[in-house]
């Protein structure tokens, strides 16, 4: 029997991953990226003649759990219609039995690729825009659970999109009866967050909240607040929390305090909503007091001066001129 080399095996495996789009309205264009559950391909919708991103499960292990989870992700995306969430277009099963869904093809960069050389206000505005769809999803009972820089896309026109809702959790009250079955497959009632059917911890270390890492059942939207804080930290320092020691002065103290509050070990000590966190970020941008940080008198004076510097300088010039007139005016 002839043995195949590793290279040939790898090549065969890669070929097997190519989705069979026979019988669908899609035409394969090229491979795009690898996701947690499968791969993402660029396809052409032959009817509407537009390009879409098709996410399909790996052929190798198309378990019912994974198929249900992919379908669940599709359903979540379909329900979350927001400019900051990639729109869903279609879902189904291919001829080879693999589950798939189609979404808008976003041309742009991930947050990781986007942030170098961006100014601090630009970075803060991006965090605020990540928080918008997150807040929207939380209000509808969805928790992302895998928020990280690689799951945020910045489009060609600067639009910010939160991607990959594959690990999203749906609160039970938000499900229709038919969807409950799927939800219980994806989110079993016991230890659901710690171990999946394949024995993989859900989430990404560094961006995952402590309660999610512990496998607590009662993970709520504040877990995403932790991840948002970790993203802010990443954007300020260039590394995930805990990855590298950061010099004390490199991050402005109020922003450090915002990160620390968002990433508090106890969810009750965190911001209670994404909106609350972005309000603090906006306060910092506008040189207003940040609720997470108690400033000293000197810092407050510095902030007030920075905020009103033009007005203060103008009044000072006026008063100085008046004093000079009094002192040197001929009597």
């Amino acid at each position: 029997m002839t043995q195949l080399s590793d290279k040939v095996v790898a090549r065969l495996q890669a070929e097997m991953q190519v989705p069979d789009l026979t019988g669908t309205r899609y035409h394969l264009v090229r491979y795009l990226a690898r996701g947690g559950m499968g791969s993402v391909w660029l396809v052409e919708d032959t009817v509407l003649q537009r390009r879409l991103a098709l996410k399909v499960l790996d052929l190798i292990a198309p378990t019912d759990d994974l198929a249900a989870r992919l379908l669940q992700e599709g359903r979540i995306l379909a329900r979350l219609e927001h400019p900051g969430i990639v729109p869903m277009h279609d879902a189904g099963t291919l001829l080879d039995g693999r589950a798939f869904y189609c979404m808008k093809y976003v041309e742009g960069q991930t947050l990781t690729q986007h942030i170098p050389n961006k100014s601090l206000p630009d970075k803060l505005r991006v965090v605020e825009r990540i928080a918008e769809p997150l807040d929207f999803a939380h209000a509808r009972g969805f928790i992302h659970r895998d928020l990280k820089p690689d799951n945020v896309m910045i489009g060609a026109f600067g639009e910010v999109l939160v991607m990959d809702w594959g690990l999203a959790k749906v609160s039970a009250s938000n499900l229709k009866p038919a969807e409950n079955e799927i939800a219980t497959v994806v989110l079993p009632t016991q230890n659901s967050l710690r171990v999946t059917g394949t024995g993989i911890v859900l989430g990404t270390p560094g961006y995952m909240s402590p309660e999610q890492a512990r496998g607590d059942i009662a993970v709520d939207h504040r877990s995403d607040i932790f991840s948002l804080g970790a993203i802010l930290w990443f954007m300020l320092t260039g590394s995930a929390p805990g990855e590298l020691p950061v010099a004390a002065g490199s991050v402005p103290r109020p922003l450090r305090a915002i990160c620390e509050k968002a990433m508090a070990a106890d969810p009750r000590a965190r911001y209670q909503s994404a909106q609350e966190m972005t309000a603090d970020i906006a306060n910092y941008r506008n040189e207003e007091p940040v609720s997470a940080y108690s400033e000293s008198l000197l810092e407050r004076a510095g902030r007030v001066f920075a905020r009103h510097r033009t007005a203060i300088v103008l009044v000072a010039v006026y008063l100085l001129m008046r004093v000079l007139f009094i002192l040197f005016e001929p009597r």
Partner: peptide, 12 residues
Amino acid sequence: LPGGIVGLIVGY
């Protein structure tokens, strides 16, 4: 001079 600066401050 003061009149101009006053106008400038109020304008800003």
